[in-house]
Design a protein around this nucleic acid. Structure first.
Lengths: 211, 211
DNA sequence: TACGATGTTGCATCGAATGCAAAAATGCAA
DNA sequence: TTGCATTTTTGCATTCGATGCAACATCGTA
């Protein structure tokens, strides 16, 4: 396996080389994917470009798709950390807005946001992408529930809140790609959330005063 | 190689046999999937059980996964129809609740709901499953937007509403599987939506009266 | 230095998926 | 019925992703 938690050992040449190789594979794969498409790139193309054996690829990544999504675990981890960092007495709504905004802003420069196009036009990747959102939603719900003391009655409620917010994140990500890079991510996030809460209130009222 | 002018005739034996074969493959595949798992079932297992050649499988389904999800197109179609059937002056909230409730009730007896377990424990299928929800969400948003006259300003709003409702549908589907079959689907759907709208109003208020 | 642990590679193999062309089944008309 | 065109089914070869295994290389350390 990849990362091994070695307590007192200095990172030797082994670990360094391994990390370098991993990065070389990742780099080569990304370049080729963006250049000629995901399906049109074979594992052999990648390993040749990265100068490793075809077999070694699977020592670093469990599948071709995982290369594309490897970076995305970082986002989920950051989000969890951002949630944990909020004061305990804040409302769920406030927590989730602050945490997501902070995480998005911290991740907006990362590579991977450029992959949106590639993912969008590759069915297999699109499916995997949605799965990522689902996992994120699950984690978010769990983290929010934890703040509520793990009360089982709050569970569906937090699941729905997570679904709403991640849904907004997805829609927001789409809108972001269509906007020229003029607007700052801060303002954009603020606006998205303001709209979201307003909509929620409106939909709630609409349902309340109906019939 | 002239164009055939009389192809629009009645359904002959050809079409009938083809549909029968398709159903035979589907049936065999489902049985084997539920019996020994998705990955553990090869195409050859299926085609042997269905008594067709291995090659013919791909004449009927583009991939192994598609067999599992073939039935799900029907749900989306029904939902679209249910939306179209609502009076034009109803609010989006009312429309979406009525349409989804009707569609779920009409589909609750179908095979495929039994597949939840299988899908849940097969990563490849889980990804595909999420993609299905994404497509459904997209379609729902489009249908809702159409009722608003296609006003581009309403677009993000309807996208978010669709995300919320489909999110609730996902959570609801999970909860449904955990409930004993004592409660009727009608009551269950009513309860889910009542909770949903209440939550929306609460989250909206929470955001409004904050800071 | 020598030994054990870890990393890398080649090789064989399986299974999904596609292209192609021969063979079989079907529909149709004379 | 028979002959012919169209569609369907099948077998075969091939590509590619993925896995298991064993030989080989590299590295850290006793």
């Amino acid at each position: 396996m990849a990362e091994n938690k070695r307590t007192e050992t200095t990172e030797g040449r082994r670990e360094r080389k391994r990390r370098q190789t991993r990065e070389r594979i990742e780099q080569a794969a990304m370049t080729l994917f963006l250049q000629r498409g995901f399906e049109a790139t074979t594992i052999e193309d990648i390993t040749e470009a990265a100068d490793v054996s075809k077999r070694s690829f699977f020592d670093y990544f469990p599948s071709k798709e995982e290369v594309v999504f490897a970076w995305q675990d970082a986002f989920a981890d950051r989000l969890m950390a951002a949630i944990a960092a909020r004061p305990a007495d804040e409302s769920s709504v406030t927590v989730v807005e602050a945490a997501i905004t902070a995480t998005v802003i911290a991740s907006v420069d990362e590579p991977g946001l450029a992959l949106g196009e590639l993912i969008h036009r590759t069915p297999a990747l699109k499916a995997r992408d949605q799965l990522k959102y689902a996992k994120l939603e699950q984690k978010l719900a769990e983290a929010l529930l934890l703040r509520k003391g793990g009360d089982p009655l709050e569970r569906p409620r937090m699941r729905v809140l997570a679904a709403i917010v991640i849904g907004a994140l997805r829609v927001g990500a789409e809108l972001w790609q269509q906007r020229p890079p003029s607007a700052s991510p801060q303002d954009f996030a603020r606006e998205i959330f303001a709209d979201l809460w307003k909509m929620l209130a409106e939909f709630g009222d609409e349902a309340k005063t109906r019939r």
